[in-house]
Design a protein around this nucleic acid. Structure first.
Lengths: 239, 239
DNA sequence: AAGTTTTTTTGATATACGTCAAAGATTACA
DNA sequence: TGTAATCTTTGACGTATATCAAAAAAACTT
């Protein structure tokens, strides 16, 4: 067995309720474990998959943090999402059997490899899993709708507030602090995601900081006035 | 039977290859017809479904033209897509059993109502349909990734060129002219979709017109230099 | 067909954000 | 431990697009 892969079970995974549907009995759960064939470790800066690569599997993030991005012909990068533990990446590859974006680990990470053929086979057997897969894809569509609102209609301040509120909510759901966290991405990557330049991101951080809304020490962020931040978010929240 | 609904069959529909998977024999095809329970007519300006409404069905557009949009708390509208014959709308509703966007007919339209329960039941029975549903959802995710690139990275000219090239490609796939068409939406709706104000859309049309790339007579557009337009599209195409 | 409303175009002006540049701060590396 | 490389901040200035406004054109209404 290679160093970076080894076998595991969802039934004993503490992230189960994030990746997997609820409502299974033990017998079904054993069957469900077949969805994940292996785990895979990805070093910071390495790619999990890239544009053009043949699509075989979805990946459930066990630990670590990813960004997904696409590039235009002339090389401009657009970050399309940041993903953390319990989230699923690779959905872009289903339609054409090839991935259309790059997934890069922003910190050392481990993912559960779920061959899509397995998922489809088991979905036909277990309606709960089928429904779950549909919901995951629909959730991503709704998230991206929210991003269109953000990119099409919102000011730099609203965009960054939205981004921060979304991050703390997701981190909080994973048992982390609501008020303090470390950004795993650079100002440039935040800017790319939000349709802003890195200087604008930096300036907006500084502005919030001057207003006492947050405290910024490089990538360490402390939320001082969560309500002020939430008030800046006047749009459908994009989880 | 109500005036606006009546029963029909996919097996005899000329849009079948757009909405439905290929590779079915006659026996299966009869079964597949069960996906669509009824058709429904929607008058121009009327809503097919709206934000907050309980989700029950996906809709395949038979005739007509739709826009989908979301609204922020303070009332700003973001158009999230324009849909034409053969395309499926309603995917946003799956994740929370409620729709999160509004779907409005931009011209008199007719849709095939496909209760999602039926789709799920039949998908378990027919892997080809299952795969098809997954591809439709993944295609929408990839399209929205492309929109993020457009909204986050592209100039007004690039956005409008992208929009026009995408439209003609889709219309051409439906047997219409590659060089001439009628816009079914206002400058404001185009602007909302592209993250621009209506004045900017109008000015950009005028600019293309002056450069001899297109001919604009209100909503009637003629493409004079398709290559010039395509050259303006330097980004992953968002179909 | 006249009048009202809506849509589109065009011009003048404003502004939010981008660009360019340089200095600090932090991290990586040898 | 020092040196290079990268990331972040801040300032000065530029520009693409927004805003405001008004006229022209088209689409409805009665």
């Amino acid at each position: 067995m290679k160093a970076e892969t080894f076998k595991v079970a969802c039934s004993s995974c503490n992230l189960r309720e994030l990746c997997m549907p609820v409502g299974f009995d033990q017998k079904d759960m054993d069957k469900l474990d077949e969805v994940v064939t292996t785990r895979k470790k990805i070093k910071q800066g390495d790619m999990l998959f890239e544009n053009g690569e043949t699509f075989t599997s979805l990946y459930a993030i066990r630990t670590g943090f990813f960004k997904t991005s696409i590039a235009s012909e002339d090389g401009r990068e657009q970050v399309t999402g940041f993903q953390m533990a319990g989230e699923i990446i690779g959905l872009d590859g289903i339609v054409n059997d090839h991935h259309t974006c790059n997934a890069v680990a922003l910190e050392d990470a481990e993912v559960c490899v779920m061959p899509f053929e397995h998922i489809e086979d088991l979905s036909r057997e277990f309606p709960i899993l089928q429904k779950h897969v549909h919901k995951i894809m629909s959730r991503e569509i709704v998230r991206e709708n929210g991003m269109m609102m953000l990119l099409g209609n919102m000011s730099a301040e609203e965009r960054l507030a939205n981004f921060l509120v979304n991050l703390i909510q997701r981190l909080y759901a994973r048992g982390q602090s609501q008020s303090e966290f470390i950004l795993r991405m650079s100002r440039e990557e935040i800017g790319s995601y939000l349709g802003l330049k890195l200087e604008t991101v930096s300036r907006t951080f500084s502005k919030y900081s001057e207003e006492g809304i947050i405290e910024v020490k490089q990538r360490h962020i402390k939320i001082l006035k969560p309500d002020a931040l939430k008030q800046l978010v006047k749009s459908p929240n994009c989880n």
